[in-house]
Design a protein around this nucleic acid. Sequence first.
DNA 1: CATAAACGAGACTAATTTAGTCCTAATTAA
DNA 2: TTAATTAGGACTAAATTAGTCTCGTTTATG
Lengths: 134, 134
Amino acid sequence: MQITRETDYAIRCVLYLVENPGKVIMVDSIAQDKDIPKSFLSKILQKLTRADIVSSFRGMKGGFKLSKNPDQISLLTVIEAIEGPVTINRCALDENICSLSNSCTVHPVWVALRGKLESWLSQHTFEGLTAKDK
Amino acid sequence: MQITRETDYAIRCVLYLVENPGKVIMVDSIAQDKDIPKSFLSKILQKLTRADIVSSFRGMKGGFKLSKNPDQISLLTVIEAIEGPVTINRCALDENICSLSNSCTVHPVWVALRGKLESWLSQHTFEGLTAKDK
DNA sequence: CATAAACGAGACTAATTTAGTCCTAATTAA
DNA sequence: TTAATTAGGACTAAATTAGTCTCGTTTATG
Ligand code: FES
Ligand code: FES
């Protein structure tokens, strides 16, 4: 029951961009500061771009910057951009996956947990994550 | 962010034993009723036995039964028996795993989240899971 | 006490996912 | 024009997941 390393990297990466508001930052800078393999980070940034969490600029002086305000980006946003939906158990996403879903008494519990988790994760935005006070 | 199939099987399996209180049940019966590959289930029941969630009886008329009351077994109990501790992020378990843990502002969030999850999972016991009313 | 019916343990395997790398193409500031 | 930068796809290695199989041990029972 863990997030993947890729997701962890993605979150650190967004964090770096939040810490440098407005600037267009190169992959290399993020990779070095946040200790992430550069070519892997490249792939991650592509996913974040497609999810419209960051926007990219090609060519010389290119790089990445956030495409939203930090308070519009939550942990859930980033997790879903990288891993897809948070499911807890396969059948909490798609009923048909499990042969027992109509008789299974745990099923509603997974569905409920999934809801809770999603709500917890979306309450933590990147605005809250950099606030020095609190 | 999912439990494994093995864990799902383990939970179904405990559920079956809860539904048949007192009886000593063979691997084969559980496997058939809950649609789990028999030899895989065998391994799972070994883990559950070591975790003292079920007790086993060898030889003719052998099998398994719960070794606790259903209200003493939670989802967390079973998940931990199969997968080990629930961590959310690797570094929420062991600080040393991450090079950035002292400066990282997400860290405390993972730790808090882990606590929430554990508490939620341990509140759902197998007594609650079979109650037909709610 | 022989035997058949169970579980226990460990070695093994196949499939899938994770965690990357690498190369070529497209863009763009200067 | 060119050097710097991302985009995309193919590829690979390692780890984890999801099992199987064989052989050994235990035990109720005729
Ligand atoms: S069918 Fe969904 S948890 Fe059992
Ligand atoms: S070091 Fe623990 S989450 Fe960043």
